[in-house]
Amino acid sequence: MANSGARSFLQVAATEEVAPPLRVVQIEGLVVLKIIKHCKEFSPALVTGQLLGLDVGSVLEVTNCFPFPIREEDEEVEAEGANYQLEMMRCLREVNVDNNTVGWYQSTLFGSYQTVELIETFMNYQENIRRCVCIIYDPSRSNQGVLALKALKLSDSFMELHRTNNFTGEKLREKNLSWVDIFEEIPIKVSNSALISAFMTELEPDTPVNQCDYERLQLSTHPYLERNMEFLIECMDDLSMEQQKFQFYYRNLSRQQAQQQTWLQKRRAENMARKAAGEEPLPEEDPSNPIFKPIPEPSRLDGFLINNQIANYCNQINGVAGQSFSRLYLMKALHES
């Protein structure tokens, strides 16, 4: 370690340029409660808010947050929204809250958050802050007694690809990127100040059962599963639409290639004839001909996102069904005893 002590500041500065990858998102209990309050109050409307905190090495600390007013598609309102954001940040700074944006949170319904909008918002944030995270809270899932909080970020390779906005099959193959690699889930840690943990220990009611237990033991999960299945079916429809788009594209492509072939053969035969007649051969390509115009390949992004959605719904169904199993067996055992 003697060597590292003798390093010059320049060296230190140079090594610090390489940021370690983000490993953990550390959220304060306060932020968890604030997010839940905001999302629950406005549910089923979807809401968003900003996360404030600190970026410490491989840990992103989220120490505070504030909600955004419900957005309306109006330019005037949008400008007001920006003002609101600045005003809120200024106010919070005055009471010594960390004044550093680290991302945003949003509510979702049945985990249907994988949208193009999310990716675009993320890219916007990413432009300004090097490290940002999106926290997703699902109020509908919380009714099952689960704390449905997730921290997401886009993977680096996906972001790179998104910047060039090139989602052709060839490019994706080159990068070896599949739909699983779009989102990265980051483990969440919850931290509390000593003061809060003292208060909570003191104030914890002395009951053996709490609200969460009631909800977990609710036998009726059918509405939730039904909605999930409905969404899943919708996704399937979307996916088959996407696939049709691709089939259409490939059919067009092969038809075009066939046309090109016939044209080329004709041109070659013509050239042979011209050669025999001692004339200059015609060029073997003709850019002005419409059959040489490349057909744009549809973006695979939508398909990828739908795949992600489907996987998510499947996971949710698996989780809830698994829970119901234990519940049913519990009921059976209780009934028998």
């Binding site: 209990g29 968890v32 409660l33 839940i36 309050k37 919380s142 007694g145 689960v146 704390l147 909080l149 483990p187 969440i188 840690k189 919850v190 931290s191 509390n192 100040s193 000593a194 809060i196 943990s197 909570m200 220990t201 104030l203 914890e204 009611p205 709490n210 609200q211 969460c212 237990d213 977990r216 033991l217 989780g319 809830v320 698994g322 829970q323 234990s326 519940r327």
Partner: peptide, 30 residues
Amino acid sequence: MVEAELVGFDILKTAMVDKLPGDVEGMEAT
């Protein structure tokens, strides 16, 4: 305290929780 219960006192009263409880752990505790 209902809202706090929804999150879980175990999370809110300790200084640091490494992992959020999942479906199965919660069910087990219940």
